[in-house]
Every structure is written in C-alpha cells, then in structure tokens.
Nucleic acid binder design. Structure first.
Lengths: 207, 207, 207, 207
DNA sequence: AATGAATGAGCATTCATTCAT
DNA sequence: AATGAATGAATGCTCATTCAT
C-alpha cells in the first residue's frame, strides 16, 4: 500500500527547531492561508498570526510574499509529482492511469492552492506564457504522457490531438477543486465526481 | 444572423451623459478591470483611473466595491442568458445545442469576469453554498436543460446523472477561460479548443 | 396655564409647503440630528436622509453645515428665551425664579443641542471669547438678572460675585443635560434632579 | 509638598526610545489632540503630524482610534485617582476634602479630555448606561466618599441624598472645564472659580 | 425652489517590507 | 536565527460642497 505524502502534515510548531523546520512550518501554514483566501487576499500578517512567528522571521526565510507563494506552489507541485510517480509506476493501462490521476487530484489535500494560480498571474500582471507554463508544465506533462501511452498501446484513438486534449483534461481536472463551493463537501461525493469526470471523458478517448 | 450583444461596447465616456449612462460606463470599465486583475487586486482607484471619474461618483452609483462587482457579474450573466435564449431557440438537437453553448462561452468576451467568482467567494469568506449557487444557478440550468432534452429525445444515454454531469460540464466549460494564460490567444485557436471540448465529451453522453 | 413652545413639534414634512416651511422642517430635523450625534459626527448626508430632502435643497436654504448648525442653536436659544419671558414675568421671588429656570431647562426638550456647543467650538477651533459669548450671552443674562433681583430684594446675600456665580450656575444647569448618559432617563427622575440642584445651591445664595 | 504627576510631561520624542516610551509619547500627544478638538474632529493624521511618527507606528501600538482614545481617557483617569489618593489621605475634614478635590480638578491639566467623553459616547452611539458608568465610576466614587464621610463625621446634613448629590457635584465640577471658552483663561481666575464653586455648594451640604 | 449627479480632499485602516538588535 | 518596532504608500470609503437643470 502506497502512502500519500501530504505537505504540512505537521501543523504545530516543532520543538527544538532548526532553521529548515521553521521554514517548512511557515510554508505549511502559508499554503493553507493561500488556499483559503487566495494570493491577493492573504496578507503577510495573516501568515504571521497563523504561524505565531514574527514578521522578521518570515522575511528571513523568504524574500517577499511572492517568493513565499511560489515556494508553496512549487512544493505542492513537487509533492504531487512525487506521489504520481509512486502511484503510477506499477500501472500500465492508460485508462487506469487516468483514474489514478483523477483520484490523486482528489486525494492531495493541498492542491487547492494550485487553483489560486490564475488569480496570482492575473493579480501580478504576470500573464505571459513563459511564466505560466513553467509552473503548470510538470503536471501538464503527466496528462500528455498518459495520452501518448494510451495511443501507443492501442487503447486510445490514433488521431487524438495530444497537446490540445492534454490542456483540456488538465483544465477539467483542476477546475474540480472549485467544487468546494458547490454541494460536494463530503469526501465520498468528491471521490464520486472525480471518478465520474473520467467516466465521461473516456469514451471520447477510447477506440 | 444573430448579433451578439456585448456588455461595454462603448468604452469612451459618452457626451451629454445622463445618470444611467454614467452608471453603465462605470460598470463596463469595472468589468474589464475585474477581469484583468480579479476582485481583490482591483482597487477602486484602478476603476477611478480607468474611468477618469471621481471616487465620489463611483460611490454615488454603487454602495461599495462588492456591490459594484456583483452588479458587473449579474450583468454579464444576464447578457449571457439573453444571448443563449436568442441563439438556442431555433435549435432542437441537444448535441448541436452543446456546440452552440460552447461557442457562446467562447464568443462572449466579458465572460472572464465569471472566472474571478471563485476568488471573490474565497477572498470575502462567502463560501457558503447559497450565496454561490445564487450566482451560478442560471448558467447551470442551461446545461441541465440540454442534458434533459438530450435524454428525452433519445440522443443521450438514459442513465446520465444529470445533476453531477451538469456540474462537470459547467466547470469544464468555464475553466476554459483560463486558456488566456496558455498558448491559445488567437480567436481561431480558442474557437477550436472550445469545439474540441464538446467533441471530447459527446461520446460519453451519446447512446 | 402657559404652554411651552417646542421647536420642531412638527416632524413630518408639511403638505403644500412653502419655502419657509421647508426651511423650518430642515431645521427641526437637523436639531434632532445634532443633539443625537454632536456637530462633527452629524453629516449633511444624515440630515438629507432624515429629512428625505435633496442635498441641493438643504444647501439652497443654508450656506453650509456650520450656518445650519448655528441657525438651529439660535432658534433653540430664542425659543428658550421666549419661554422664559412668558413663564417668569408673573413671578417676583428670585428663589422661585431659580426653580422656574431649572424647570424650564428640564422641560425644553431641544436643549441638548446646546450641549454640543462646546464640541462645536473646539472642533472648529473657534475657541475665542467673542464667538462663544455671543451664543451663550442671552441665557447667561437670565441668571445674572435673577441674582441681581435677589440681591436687590434682599433675598440673596449682598456680597455675591454676580458675574462669577452666574457662570457657575449656568454651567451647572447646562451640565445636567449630560444626565441622559447616567441613570436619569425618566422624566420624573430628571425633574427631581433639576429641582435638587437648586435646593443645593440656594443656601449658598440666601441670606 | 506633594508633587502632582502630569501625564505627558515629556512632549518631545525621547532619544534611544524603547517601545513603551514610544507608546507613551503617542498617548501624551494624542491626549492633547483629543482635548483640543474632541474625539470626532481629531483625525489620526492630526496625531501622526503632531507626533511626527508614521501612521503605521500608531497603528502598531493601538488597534484603532477608539482604542487609543480610551487608553488616553483611562490614563488620565488613573492619574487623577492617583493624585487624589496622595493629596487627600492626610486630610480628615470632608469640607476641606471638597476644596482639595476642586483644586485637583483645576490643577490636573490633562483633565479636559474627560470633557470630550460625552461627545465620544454620542458620536459612537455608545450611549448605554454601562459603557458610560464604567469610565465615570472611579471619579464618581470620590465624591460619594466625601459626602458619606461628611455625614458620618457630623459635618454634613444627615438627610443628604448621597447618590443624587454626587451626580450633581461631579457634573458641576467637570463642567467647569468648559471655562476655557469663557473669560477664565488665567490660572488665577480659574483657581478662584473652582474655589468659589465649593463656597457656593457648601452651605447646602453643611448642618 | 428643488434636484441629484459630480467632485476631490480627507478619513480610518491595512499593507508589504525594512532593519537595528 | 529570530524579533518586533517602524515605515509610508495604498486601500475602501465618507465628507462637505458645487452646480447644471
């Protein structure tokens, strides 16, 4: 049984801290804050209050708010990739990989911060292709790989426009994080809808 | 040929204004601002500068930033519904209606403001189901209607879970507004991807 | 039986108004507003809302907030003097006049606005003797007159320092308007305390 | 000889400040500002300008204007009580204590801020008995104590209504702060009138 | 006489960030 | 490494006042 690593499992300040622990502690709390209020609406004071650390300490570890935010994003993204590698390596069916991918998107609780990325790009006027793609690319690649594997193995149609469909699937899946706003609060309901998403898409992919 | 009404066609301050014109002018500019920077990151000063009106005037017409934002949202939503009614009434195939719906999502240029709603709810801590659904419901209903019609006419599978799939489709479609961040800047590319989204989904719906 | 005229008996906008009625209506409402929130904290918008008249109309009748305020003050002061003249002319005992004076201070419901004068002077930096005395003088004179009459008639001590004691009595009496903040809300309690004030002072005045 | 402690003896920014000094410095200046213009008409910008500190610093030490104001009030009130305790403990005659009390009201130069309390209550709609009494009670108690002592020692009449008369005396005395508006600017004149106030009241109290 | 749209200075408060200790 | 005091620009919003109609 593979255990999913979750960023920020530890949420109380560790005793006998060293510098790296402190930094990680801040990142964990900050990730929660950004998830809950978005990039703009989260203030450094919010993070200070939630961590019970001084502003000076936060700025000692991170140059500014933006760097802290991107560090959080990067970490969650890495976490996701790591989990994906673990969970997908034993599986060879593209179809089953899609379900694993969907399930992972649902399971990794920190992922909502990825949903604040659009607001971040927009709020900071960084809406240029390069900056954006740099952050999205790794997860993007997962979907592309699944599609290519499916085509090569004969599971999926030969004429799929891989790049475009990867964008569509990626968008589709990440948009489901918004479901917290709708009536999908419980884990069961959420799991079901993530699964249903793949059910809905698969016929369009399969031969 | 049906002409699509776009909110805010007029972008320069009209001469010989009356109160209602001024209000609409502010709404048009504000909609653009909120689209470009989101709810939190758009300041009343931004709107003041873009409109070249005084702060007093903006506050004369709108009680506060939130009311102005929701007024913009409401207007764009109404606009969308109006266009949908116009464009869909002559069509009886559920499949074709899906394409019309996708195309309309692509065409109506002000729609990106709808994509800031999640950030608005999150930033203002209004993440309760009722407040959210009130604003999303009308467009939501469009998708439900298409699905029900498709089932009744025999185009779509009988056992579709209409409510859940409506949520999925709505999320899927609105998530495509994020494409401005990726390499889909040109109208042609965008039109293609909106169409492709329906191509991808349809096999999962059809008998 | 003498009927006490109260400023602002009419509190609903008169039908078939003429200009003077409108002006008086504004003054009545404004007096209430200034009483309730003081000079600084009462905004022209408050008065507009309470009167349901337009800002334009208020500024048509009064040059600015200050002029409106002083008009209210003047009217209440005149009202008080008028009532005093009516109620005191039949009385010849200085002692009894003091009680009538105290009672009148209690009865005239608009008087609290006089208690905002100090804040007005202080907020507008008009703390020069002349401006102040001009507004206080008439009521001031009432007290002086009573004292002089009492001395001349032999009721009061010969060596009273009339000017200083007049100031003290005037301050004493007007300070009682602050009693609304304490536990003296009911008319009975208030009447009692105004009377008690004179009971307390009289031995110091009488031979 | 007892030296009267005055809040805010230091009025220029101390060198080598620590946090507590800065806070006290702000309080001293703010007290002066509130005295001079009242609660509503004193802006945080006024206090910033007078202190030559940044707005951020003021808000670092005090949550908001109201908290700063109440802190000033509290400090002045404590100061007064402290001085009263010092100056009155050696004295056993109720009559003499009244003169000491009056003299102290005159001497403690920061007291005018207490005169802005009515405007504060009124401007902030906090005109409920409990909020008010909480701030007035301590000084109120001084007067009650003097009266009770005077009755018990046989100096004052047995049948004095202590509570009511305490209110009257307290109001009377604090109203004298308004004398700055009249022709009582010099210390000599002020001292005289505070003394005269007690001269006037005493016959009503004594057997 | 009366209106209400428009103005911009001013308001209390929050912000990300700096820096001496 | 960590602190918390200090900064001043920026924020959302209110204000008294003006003026064309």
């Amino acid at each position: 049984m593979i255990e999913i690593k979750k960023v920020g499992d530890i949420m109380s300040r560790p005793i006998g801290v060293n510098s790296e622990d402190t930094k990680q502690f801040i990142v964990d709390i900050a990730t929660k804050c950004f998830e809950q209020k978005g990039y703009s609406a989260t203030s450094m004071a919010d993070i200070k209050n939630e961590t019970n650390m001084s502003k000076g300490t936060i700025y000692y570890h991170f140059k500014n708010k933006e760097e802290l935010y991107l560090y959080c994003i990067q970490q969650v993204s890495n976490e996701f990739l790591h989990n994906w590698t673990m969970m997908s390596k034993a599986e060879h069916s593209a179809e089953k990989k899609l379900y694993i991918w969907a399930n992972l998107n649902n399971l990794v609780v920190q992922k909502p911060i990825m949903n604040t990325l659009h607001e971040y790009f927009v709020a900071t006027n960084k809406n240029n292709y390069d900056a954006v793609i740099k952050l999205y690319e790794p997860e993007f690649q997962i979907v592309k790989d699944i599609l290519v594997e499916g085509i090569e193995s004969g599971e999926f149609k030969n004429d799929l426009q891989v790049d475009d469909i990867a964008v569509l699937l990626f968008n589709f899946m990440t948009s489901l994080d918004h479901l917290d706003l709708f009536d999908y609060g419980t884990p069961q309901k959420q799991k079901k809808i993530y699964r249903l998403a793949i059910d809905l898409i698969l016929p369009g992919l399969k031969k």
